[in-house]
Amino acid sequence: MKRYLELVCPAGTPMALRVAVDAGADSVYCGFRDCTNARNYPGLNFDPDELRAGVAYAHARGCRVFVAVNTFPRAGDLGPWQRAIDAAADAAADAVILADLGTLDYAGRHYPRLRRHLSVQAAAASPLAIRFYAETFGVSRVVLPRVLAVAEVAALIGKTGVEAEVFAFGSLGTMVEGRCYLSSYMTGRSPSCDGVCAPAEQVSYREEGNQLASYLGDVLMNRVDASEGAAYPTPCKGRFLVRGEPRYLFEEPTALNVMPLLAELKAAGVTALKIEGRQRSRAYVGAVVAAFRRSLDALAAGEPLPMETALRGVAEGGRETFGAYQKGWR
């Protein structure tokens, strides 16, 4: 069956990988249990044996597996990243998702036949940047940052000839990814190098009167009333005092959902849709992947898209947005 848009789905655990494959993922992405990927949370991710088993499970069902090695090694400590690429190649993964120039260089020299995808952590948002990565490192696909309008996505694809993977659903950061130090500013652990934004051991909640206060390190991120939804305690979703007024300075707690834009994205020449959320539960993975599978199949068959209201139940802040795909976001 010809699939017009490839559905790329998150797997934080081997169990989530199976759920995603069974729910109709065309590809699954995952990472190792260390700082070499951008979802380095306790208890999450794969060891090399789990990856091998996951790849076997997916391949047996016609699904591909991408391995994210998308953080930036700190000077003097390149080993874990090189070993992660070795292990991904050894497990017969279909691609590695990379961001660091040195890591791209290593993968290209040692495994020229292993597909290299450019992670969103590299934040290549212009034809020039994408061509730079394609020409310098032979990158065959780029995961586009969540900062472009649909028309810009289309223009960019037209100018580069590199496969484009765009975010379709999930958490929405507002900063240029891979270049945001807000979390390390408050916690000392770096999203770029340690692979963890708002690390769990630095997040705490306190009941203050009728309000729930969230802290990152010792920084007060937000206070919400009982009637308000809670959000991830990441700095870009925090509520701060600006010009004397409390406000969501960077972004309201909200989740990206491009379901109503599928036809437009397809027309723009997008190769793949990416579901965010390796840190989410397999219940989330199952619900979101199945919903997108139904819609993409309907789209491919030229049928009207089913109404997918179930997704709102798993959206951050219970609120959805088109993000930058829609004009006016900036």
Binding site: F72, A75, A99, D100, C193
Partner: peptide, 9 residues
């Protein structure tokens, strides 16, 4: 993002 010597090179 020049976090390491490989990228610097």
């Amino acid at each position: 993002n020049v976090f390491n010597e490989a990228t610097r090179d």
